[in-house]
Structure formats: C-alpha cells, structure tokens
Design a binder for these strands. Structure first.
Lengths: 131, 131
DNA sequence: CGGTATCCAAAAAGATACTG
DNA sequence: CAGTATCTTTTTGGATACCG
C-alpha cells in the first residue's frame, strides 16, 4: 500500500501554539504579570520583587508585554519622576488559562523529577561506553 | 511610613512557573506531543509531520520529553530496524491545561495583533528622534 | 533508519557603565 | 528613578557529514 494515501498533517513553526509561547514563554514575562496582578507598580518596585532580573531584561520584558497590550506604561510627572506599570484586562485574562498550567505543574512536578532522576541514572549505565 | 513594613514578596527563577515552561516552552515540544497524541510513531514519521525541524533538534526535543516521562522510546528489532515513540499518560495529561492556553490564544490573537500594530506604529512617531 | 559529532549563526541573557 | 548603550557569555537552533 502506497503511503500517498496516508495522512501527513503538517505542524509548522507558526502554529498558534507558538504565538503565545513566543510572547510569554520567556524567563520572566509570567512573573512580571504575577507581580502586577496585585497592584500597579513602578519600575524598581517590580524589579525588587524579581530576584535576579537585570534592568535590561526587565525593560525588554515590559516592552514586550506592553506591545502585546498586556501591560500599560504611564509616566508620572513629579519631583521624583516615575513610571507606573499596570496590568490590563487582557493580561489579567491570560492568567486564567495559565493557572491551569501552573496547577498541573504543582500536581505533577514530583513525578517529573522522579522520571528525570531515573533517566539520568540510566544514562550512567546504558549506551555509555566504559571509557 | 517606612517601607520596611511593606511586603516585598520575591519571585525567583525557580518559580514553578519556570519548571514547566523550561521543559515545554521551546520551539517544538508541544508540537511533538500533538503529533504523538494521535498514535505512536517512528522518528522519521514524526519528522515528516513537523515542517522545518532538523534531525538534531528533533532528537534533542524527544530526549527532553523522554527524560520528563512524557514520551517513551521503544526499539523495534527487525530487518528494517526502527524506533517507536509514544506519548505517556503524563504527556497526555499535560495537553488538558495546555488546551486552555491554546484556546485563549485563538480567542485573543486578533486583539494582540492589533496592539502590536498600534505599538509599532506609535514607535514611529513617539520618542523617536527625527534623525 | 535513527541517530551522533561538528561547526556555525542567531538569539537570549548577564555584567557593567553611563544618562536625562 | 528609569532607563539606554556596550560588551560578553550562554543558549538555541540550523547545516552538514558521518556511523551502526
């Protein structure tokens, strides 16, 4: 039987799957949204809650979120000039489906770790030349 | 009021948020799982359904999914030697929460694109020195 | 067929210094 | 305070070639 009759559906790199992961699958985006979820905050206010993030990366992350309409940036005139970032309804709505993923992770994280340990242990003894 | 009394909760890079995104937030993982969801397949069978993926990257993706226990690899002895990959219950269960994210994307993708266009257009006229 | 080994390019991230 | 500008390192992915 020729395989021409077989289905060969194609997934491509522009799958909707990618659309959102490309935007919020990076290291900090979801944490920035989580921080802003409680209340609007200024640049360094956000930065203080994200241990290890650099100014540069936070700026990039905020720009990307702003570009997607998930965050708005507002300049505060005053003697100590400031900028306030707040989450938009769109950004807030993203957290519902994301919470499902978060809960899944909490539920299965132990299982995953066990698989990883098992896999890493086997790698020592299998298909590993004795050197 | 001193800000010492203020809460400064800390999100760190090892947030559970990262646990799963680090594993499946890459370019192809979710699409590989989607392909295997229908039925077990061999290496090149998977590859044929993923337009643009290279052998090297598919191998890496499968190893990572296998390490996490989301996919199992089985060697098929025979005259044309082969390897069959199949999705595990764990991998299958991940698709439920992920579907929520997928649906969210489909629902809001137009809004996001409009924000992006608007943002990109404004960038031409604002805070842009005339050169 | 199902990979591994290399080499290379591009993108993301970290460190640091400087500015309105 | 809220960035920008550079430079360097790390990570990721693509292109090839070769192997059991």
């Amino acid at each position: 039987m020729p395989r021409d009759t077989e289905d060969e559906p194609i997934y491509r790199a522009d799958c909707p799957t990618r659309t959102i992961l490309d935007q919020i699958g990076d290291k900090w985006s979801m944490m920035v949204l989580a921080v802003l979820r409680a209340s609007p905050k200024r640049f360094n206010g956000i930065k203080r809650q994200l241990e290890g993030i650099t100014q540069r990366v936070l700026t990039q992350t905020l720009r990307k979120l702003e570009r997607n309409g998930m965050v708005v940036r507002r300049v505060i005139g005053g003697s100590p000039p400031g900028v306030e970032y707040s989450i938009t309804p769109l950004g807030r709505s993203l957290q519902e489906p994301f919470a499902a993923l978060y809960d899944w992770t909490l539920e299965h994280i132990d299982t995953i770790h066990k698989h990883q340990e098992s896999y890493d242990r086997d790698a020592q003894t299998t298909t590993r030349r004795p050197d």
